[in-house]
Amino acid sequence: MTTESKIKNPEPIWQCDNIGAGFSAHEGVIKGLNLSVNAGEKIALLGTAQSGKALLLRCLVGLRPVREGTFKVFGNEMKKLDYFEDWENIMPQSLRRRIGVCLEVEGLLSNVSVREGMELLFRFKYGDHSAKLREGAKKIVDQTCAHFGLGASIHKRPNLLTSAERRLAGIARAFLSKPHVIVLENPSQNVGDLHRETLWRALDFVAADAGRTAIFSTEDWSLAYRYCPRWIVMEDGKFVFDGSPREFLRGDHELVKGLRRLREIEASHRAAFEEVA
């Protein structure tokens, strides 16, 4: 059994050999996946809807148990579980805290303001028994939120925020403790042009840090191309491609064909817009 005390020095970050998992006990959505992620890699997880991206991400961050194969995080083998009640023990707390996560549904605490929710998580992780620690938590939350351009909206409850603000607040929370590893599910989802610059700036910071590992599950091709030198494409719970974006875009995968069609439509729209303008 993996325990907090047995955590070894991590290398690689994730090592999956022939893993299988599902959203329920009897359903297998992903099967026979092999994946190795080294420190500093920036990976885009792409694929069609229902291809297994969301489940794989949840397995990687310890929110879903792996039922088959060998799954190691920071060099520590994780338990294979079936029962909900044990899910808390899928991954030790100390490993979870090294990974910053923002899933598709941000899950901001709804009964407190965004700022209070972030401070609370920070204090729970690092302790709140001294005034210095509590002040430190406030300062870090303020700095991180300012970096994401959240401004006065952090004093509001999540239900009063726009979807873009909620998204940025969720991503800001993932960055709060400056984790070694960032996992973001659809980071640009709901982020319109107004907030896109802020998001780019935050992700530039991740891209510039050679030691920081990142996995973005996304349907935003431009984001994937800009930040991720390694693309993994999933289909029906399996990897159909693992390599560089150039290599993938030169191929004739259905996704690439769809992307080309999309680019043609966008180009015609742009031409029409320029004509009017």
Binding site: L63, R96, L109, S110
Partner: peptide, 11 residues
């Protein structure tokens, strides 16, 4: 609302 998963994911 995904709050439980997010708490767990945040450690």
């Amino acid at each position: 609302n995904g709050e439980i998963d997010s708490l767990r994911a945040c450690g």
